[in-house]
Design a binder for these strands. Structure first.
Lengths: 229, 229
DNA sequence: CCAAAAGTGTTAAAACTACACCCATGA
DNA sequence: TCATGGGTGTAGTTTTAACACTTTTGG
């Protein structure tokens, strides 16, 4: 970087893969485009980075503007720079992924989210640009990271049952886990704390609710503990 | 991304953290700047992205131009977008890290590398821009990734002793490993193959040379095997 | 013959896996 | 009273961790 810019500049954008979880599936939030290129097709929420905002700020701003989602877990994923990825001109995009608890956030509460909708990961429409590839990289990252960082809790409500937690891992890792072994492991780590409450309105015995104990997690981590499912 | 660019654009750069390993230490390649800002200070090799090249191409081009290093392991790290990270103007940089075998590549063979030099990670000069932070993120990534991806071999010559391999992990992970357990584990994975040769010119019993067997690694990986040290 | 690193096995503890039944609740 | 999921323990196997001595080679 020994000299100033003497060439044409690529444009710089951000795109966000928002994952949500319901009782069935991992879901992804998509936006239906209403302008060319790819008019009418579904795409990841995103937009251009302004010169006076950080990349994280740009991603959060676009999320609010396009989906109404705010204050959610957001992490940078990868930067995609294929020369022809946007047919209009050279656009490099910094991709993020976000995790959101589907029960706690209502997309439709947003003003400008007429074209936003959740799709199950297993049944996505055709996506604009290289967004299919971005989404695959995001899912790959989520699957890898969820095993050794306690990010999965971001997909659950504040208080959750161990069944919900196990279901989360089963959906993301795409394999079944043994109930007894899973509970033993999670409880042995001491990073989920039992609350005094139980589920409501279920047609069977109600399960105990637990809470992720971030303080204990941070303390244990400083002592060399490694989270792993 | 529903509209074209109506704002000023950030400039886009790449920077590369090149790691090398010798008998002592992890080393990092730095460039001494000869222009403001930070004139005379050391910095990561890097430069602006051209509009007709991919990010990977830009990183490789800058590496060749500034250090003479080519055909080395290179992987995207993270994109840094703090608004004031460059005092001249808004510059977003896509950081990479690279791994190189110090025995196999001579920096001084490069034409334009008068200002390039290796520094031990444990004794770095003050760096320009936010390059100290980039370097810390790169080291963190290397430390995390080396345990579950066979990238460490990139830091060694084609044929290496098990001692060299163990030393590599000890330096990167910053802790001692048990010789017998380490050998057992590595050999049990069957991804390093014994050669028929041994070390030369050592003042003690010469160790057997091994080679990383990428074909076997790929085959095992397809079968669900997970590398882990 | 000395210094330096190569090479090699065993045992105890811990972690992991597989597996089945009774219990509580609401409909 | 039935359907549904909640909740619990054990035994066999595998993996990990700790640990010390003999061999080979060049100087």
């Amino acid at each position: 970087m020994g000299h100033t810019y003497e060439f044409a500049r690529p444009a710089l954008a951000v795109d966000v893969v928002v994952f949500g979880l319901d009782e069935e599936d991992l879901q992804v939030m998509l936006i239906q485009r209403d302008l060319p290129p790819f008019d009418g097709q579904w795409a990841l929420p995103g937009g251009f980075v302004r010169v006076e905002e950080t990349l994280d700020d740009a991603a959060r701003r676009e999320l609010v503007e396009e989906t109404g989602l705010r204050d959610i877990y957001l992490e940078q994923l990868y930067t995609f720079g294929a020369v022809e990825r946007d047919p209009r001109e050279r656009v490099v995009t910094v991709a993020y992924y976000a995790l959101v608890n589907l029960e706690g956030h209502d997309v439709r509460a947003s003003t400008d989210a007429r074209n936003a909708a959740w799709f199950p990961l297993s049944d996505l429409p055709e996506l604009a640009f290289d967004h299919q590839e971005i989404l695959e990289v995001a899912y790959e990252r989520l699957r890898g990271k969820v095993r050794y960082q306690p990010i999965g809790f971001e997909l659950l409500p504040d208080r959750f049952t161990l069944r919900q937690l196990q279901h989360l891992y089963e959906v993301i890792l795409d394999r079944e886990l043994d109930k007894r072994n899973f509970r033993k492991k999670v409880l042995a780590m001491e990073i989920v704390r039992e609350t005094k409450d139980i589920e409501k309105d279920v047609a069977h015995r109600a399960a105990r609710l637990y809470r992720f104990d971030k303080r204990t997690y941070d303390r244990l981590t400083r002592q060399g503990f490694n989270f792993e499912i």
